[in-house]
Computed example of a mutant assay.
Amino acid sequence: MLIAQNHLQLILEVAVIIHMGVLLLINIIPFTLSMVLFLSLILTMFLAGIFSVDTALLFLPFFSHQEFTHPFGPLAVFAWTTLSASASLLSEVEIKSTSITALSLILFGVIAVAGGLMHRSFLILWFLGWFLGYFIMSKSFRRSVKITRKRVFTVVGAAVGGFALLEILSRVLNATVLSPLLRLSRLEEYAIPSLKMVVKNTQLWGHVQGSCYWGASCLGGSDGYVTLPMNLINTFTLPFPLFFGVLVTKKDVIDYMLPGIFGVAFDFGFGGLFALMCWCVFVMCSGFYVLRKYRSKRRVGNRRYLGREALLIGALTAFMAQTIIGLFLFNRSFNGSAMITYIFLSAMVVAHLVSVRPSSR
Rank of each mutant, 00 (worst) to 15 (best):
M1K: 00
L2I: 08
N6S: 07
L8K: 10
V14Y: 04
A15W: 06
V16S: 06
M20K: 00
I26F: 01
T32Y: 06
M35E: 06
F38E: 10
L39M: 10
S40G: 13
M45E: 10
G49F: 15
G49N: 14
I50T: 15
L60R: 13
S64N: 01
H65G: 00
H65K: 10
T69Q: 12
G73Q: 10
G73F: 05
L75W: 08
L75T: 13
F78D: 02
A79H: 05
L83W: 08
S86N: 03
S86G: 05
S86R: 01
A87E: 06
E92I: 05
V93R: 12
E94Q: 14
S97Y: 05
T98D: 14
L103K: 01
L117V: 10
L123S: 03
I124C: 02
I124E: 03
L125I: 03
L125P: 01
F127H: 10
G129K: 04
W130D: 07
G133W: 12
F135N: 02
F135Q: 09
F135D: 04
S140D: 00
F141C: 07
S144V: 08
V145M: 13
K146C: 00
R149H: 05
R151I: 08
T154A: 14
V156A: 15
V156C: 05
A158T: 14
A159Y: 13
V160R: 02
E167D: 04
I168R: 03
R171G: 01
V177I: 08
S179H: 07
A191V: 14
P193H: 11
P193D: 14
K200D: 15
W205P: 00
G210L: 03
A216G: 00
L219G: 09
S222D: 04
Y225M: 02
T227C: 12
M230S: 14
L238T: 13
P239E: 08
P241D: 11
F244Y: 09
V246E: 13
L247H: 03
T249K: 10
K251M: 14
D252L: 13
D255F: 13
Y256S: 11
L258P: 15
G260S: 07
G260R: 00
F262P: 00
A265T: 04
A265I: 00
L273S: 02
L273F: 07
W279G: 04
C280W: 06
C280H: 12
V281D: 11
M284E: 07
C285G: 00
C285K: 11
L291A: 10
R292E: 11
N302S: 11
R303D: 13
R304H: 11
Y305G: 03
L306K: 07
G307A: 12
L311Q: 09
L311R: 09
L312P: 09
G314S: 13
A315E: 06
T317H: 10
A321M: 07
A321F: 06
I324A: 12
I324G: 04
I325E: 14
G326V: 01
L327F: 14
F328D: 01
F330I: 02
F330E: 02
N331Y: 04
N335L: 01
S355G: 00
P358T: 10
P358W: 11
R361H: 14
